[in-house]
Simulated scan of single mutants.
Amino acid sequence: MSLDNVVEDIREEARARAEEIREDGEQRASEIVAEAESDAQELRESRKTDVERQVKQEREQALSSAKLEAKQKRLEARRDVLEDVREEVESELASLSGDRRETLTRSLLDDAADEFDAGNDVVVHGRAADKALLEDILEEYDDYSYGDSYDCLGGVVVESTQSRVRVNNTFDSVLESVWEDNLKEVSARLFDQ
């Protein structure tokens, strides 16, 4: 065998080996590309799912926040309406006059008088505008006198000089008690709950 034949055989073998390496490389490159494309697809799907979940969560948070804000505004509006109603009632009580004011004042004084023993010196305080009315009513009570004016819508504050007993039977205190006891019902009527 000649040297040329040996060289040619080695070349052929090298070419065949190179072709084999090239084919293995192309196959490995195809596998790497396919794997990379698969990984990229999985990553895209994962990111898409994450983004959709985040969008949904943000939408739910925004909706929840909007509902809470609406509820707070509704409660504020209700509170404002209730305050307006209370102010209107207070205004009506303050503007009572004539027989109606006298009847209510007498009733509140009679209830307070039950708390004091006969013979006690009792001082009655009331609204400055009711001084004349109270002095007229007090003429019917022994040992009762009109004291200082008291800042209220009407009614009386009665106290004994012999004891520490003090009875607050003002329109304000009665309204406060009635208001607290009936606030739920008033609210239900106003807001159709």
Rank of each mutant, 00 (worst) to 15 (best):
D151E: 15
D143G: 02
E139G: 05
G155R: 09
L96Q: 11
A113E: 07
E102N: 05
D117M: 10
F116W: 06
V124K: 04
T103F: 10
V124E: 07
E102K: 14
A113L: 13
A128C: 00
H125C: 09
S107N: 12
L93K: 04
R127T: 03
K131W: 03
L104H: 05
A94D: 15
V124P: 02
L134C: 09
V122D: 01
E139P: 03
V156F: 10
D111P: 01
D99R: 11
E90D: 06
S91F: 02
E115D: 12
L138I: 07
A118F: 03
V156N: 01
L96R: 11
S107C: 00
D142P: 13
D130I: 14
R101K: 15
A132R: 14
A118W: 02
A113Y: 03
L108H: 01
D136I: 04
V122F: 02
D117W: 08
V124M: 08
E92P: 00
G154M: 12
E102D: 11
A129Q: 14
R100E: 15
A112Y: 02
L93M: 10
A113F: 02
F116N: 01
R127K: 15
G154V: 12
D117Y: 10
E135P: 08
Y141A: 06
E135G: 06
A129K: 14
E102A: 12
Y150N: 05
V158A: 05
L96E: 09
L96S: 09
S107F: 07
R100P: 00
G126S: 15
D136T: 14
E90G: 02
V156P: 01
V156G: 01
G147H: 08
R127I: 04
L138G: 07
I137E: 06
C152M: 12
E135T: 15
A94I: 06
D143V: 03
R106V: 10
D151Q: 13
L93H: 04
V157E: 11
G119P: 06
L96Y: 06
D117C: 02
T103V: 11
L133P: 09
E135L: 05
G147I: 13
G147A: 07
T103E: 15
A118V: 11
D136W: 00
Y146G: 08
L133W: 09
D136H: 08
A132L: 12
I137L: 14
K131Y: 01
Y146A: 11
H125P: 00
I137P: 03
F116L: 03
A118L: 10
S107H: 13
L96N: 10
D114A: 05
G126M: 09
A112R: 00
L96P: 10
A129F: 01
L104F: 11
D99H: 05
V124T: 07
S149C: 00
D110E: 15
D148F: 00
A129H: 04
H125T: 03
R106S: 04
D111F: 08
S107Y: 08
R106N: 09
L133V: 12
A128N: 11
D142K: 13
G126Y: 07
D114C: 01
L96F: 06
E115H: 14
D99M: 04
G154P: 13
L104M: 14
S91M: 05
G154A: 12
S149W: 04
I137V: 13
A113G: 03
A118Y: 04
G119Y: 06
